[in-house]
Design a protein around this nucleic acid. Structure first.
Lengths: 344, 344
DNA sequence: CTGAAAGCGCTTACAG
DNA sequence: CTGAAAGCGCTTACAG
């Protein structure tokens, strides 16, 4: 900027005024400054500007990792921000220390919201987070009180298990997610409620404790399926884990859905591509991103009127991985047919 | 930081030394500062730090839009950065003015690279770009001389057209991409070379001028297919456009691949899901991101040894949308069978 | 071992 | 209408 000022023969204060379109600069001075800017290819430093100003028109998004889930969310966020005047900065850490990651949301957030961003979205935080500027959580931690948008995991999981019950399953295994996350808790609760609603007793031996990591599911599935009285169906709390269950079943020589029904949660793109396709519960990750960005924008400009915690509906997507259990099959063969009615 | 300094009864200089682990601070002072930091939940401001320091350990990525393509690229970038000590900042503008976007790469880059980032990746720039810090382009503009990584579009396109020629097609239409982009030029060149290699004359009337936008392809496809002597196959320079060709064919009552073969380029996830599946050329967007990040890291640390322009191989993915033309079909019926041997 | 001071690139009252 | 000066939150020679 000082280069521009020198070239135009004015002070940096004047250059700043021209750049920001403030009133009170003569036409001739403006023209000179403009031409110097043009000539030098000057562009104001985001960093310096944001350090000095209170409002930056930049929104932040912090995320721990970058998976299919995050990518979908981002598409929604960008759509909501189109022509809004807000740019987006996404901060992703490179997971330097592994175990050190506890508290990543708060750390990244503080670093950004110091001055860079007017507000932030935080994706799947492990706990609530403090900030001077507005923050919206996507898929918040359990018992979170911060503004958030989340899928109706409870209803979704209930529907999933009711689907299995409706097919005639009574021994239904469950592979849970990381228990500190609200989504994991709700999905397990849905499992319990659906069983209770059907008068089926909960068997602790049929519940495996995963953590949403696909790898965590394989040994649990193996254990479930090697029981003397194995389940006829398994509900995994995420598609990633459900896909692993499919693998294990294949290893064990079990056919899906003949010997075992499998149902997941999320409806990630991959779940459509397996053979058979994975029956699952769709939570629109795009919608999560879209709504979160919409809320954040309004929170920043101060005109948010809706509820501060948004719950988005989920829907069951029936593909080929679920069917009536073996013993029922001869009685209802037509129910075993692959049904596929899902379009995005 | 001044809060911390006050709480610990030291100067901000000392706090800074503790935060950055510099030598020359007594153990007792360090402990006091640490405890104050802990108590106050202090985290240094990314902005202020980067304004003062030369090295930030943050890499930038600037992109115009955020589509499936970008998402795949990002996964590769993040993988390459894992545990590298570099964090990633992605800057995406909200396309405030639409037409104003000319020069977006340079603008965003300058704003970031002022002080925030140690280097940047720029995705599909429309032209070359200047920066004091290293920059790597993914899918650079035509005649670009900057460091870059790009797919072997020429070989890929040649293979695509040779595939059609091998099936017996001689009248092959082409729908081109935005001509200023190197990828568009190479794909068209591949088309020309393959035809020339087979001794098939180029018919200008069979070439439609699209711009990579899916919408641009529909009218062009319609025009091609309504000719008195329509092509028996169409090669579209991107999957997005090829998918549109599929739509138009359906509208016109043409079956694919019976009446018309269609082949695309990119292998976006959607191309696997259509009926029939789209035969296409796979360019690994993940690899593009991975290699670009790897190069940028080394460029920043100054230990890059390889070539500064990387060309990544492409591969043909044969699905159901290509088959011999009608007249040949009765003679080689087995060639029309759907072949699918692609795994990522 | 520690602090006072300068400065990174900007913006914004405050004078003139 | 324009400039000198202070200050945003840090880091880093330079003294002591």
């Amino acid at each position: 900027m000082s280069d521009v000022a020198r070239a135009a023969g004015v002070s940096t204060a004047t250059v700043s005024r021209v750049v920001n379109g403030h009133y009170g600069v003569s036409a001739s001075t403006t023209a000179q400054v403009r031409s110097a800017i043009e000539r030098l290819g000057y562009e104001s430093s985001l960093v310096a500007t944001s350090l000095r100003r209170s409002r930056t028109n930049v929104l932040g998004l912090v995320t721990h990792s970058f998976q299919s889930y995050t990518a979908e969310v981002l598409k929604g966020v960008m759509q909501a921000l189109r022509r809004s005047g807000f740019d987006l900065i996404i901060y992703a850490n490179s997971d330097l220390y592994g175990t050190y990651s506890e508290g990543w949301e708060q750390r990244h957030l503080t670093r950004l919201s110091g001055t860079l961003t007017d507000g932030c979205i935080v994706v799947t935080p492990w706990g609530d987070v403090q900030s001077r500027t507005p923050v919206v959580a996507i898929d918040p931690a359990r018992d979170s009180t911060m503004p958030s948008v989340t899928a109706d995991n409870l209803a979704g999981a209930t529907t999933a298990v009711e689907h299995l019950l409706g097919l005639g399953h009574r021994r239904i295994g469950f592979i849970a997610g990381r228990s500190s996350l609200a989504a994991a808790w709700s999905r397990e609760e849905g499992y319990r409620r659906a069983l209770a609603g059907a008068g089926v007793p909960i068997e602790p031996g049929l519940i495996g404790r995963g953590d949403f990591n696909p790898e965590s599911a394989a040994p649990l599935a193996r254990e479930l399926l090697k029981r003397p009285d194995p389940p006829t169906a398994i509900f995994a709390a995420s598609d990633g884990m459900a896909l692993e269950v499919l693998e294990v079943a294949k290893d064990l020589g079990l056919t899906v859905p003949g010997d075992l029904s499998v149902i997941g949660f999320d409806n990630i793109p991959e779940s459509e591509l397996t053979e058979p396709g994975l029956t699952t519960v769709d939570q629109s990750m795009y919608q999560l991103g879209y709504e979160a960005a919409r809320m954040l924008k309004s929170l920043v400009t101060g005109d948010w009127e809706g509820p501060r915690q948004i719950l988005l509906p989920t829907s069951l997507v029936v593909r080929g991985s679920t069917a009536p259990p073996r013993t029922h099959r001869t009685r209802h063969p037509h129910l075993a047919a692959q049904i596929s009615g899902h379009t995005r």
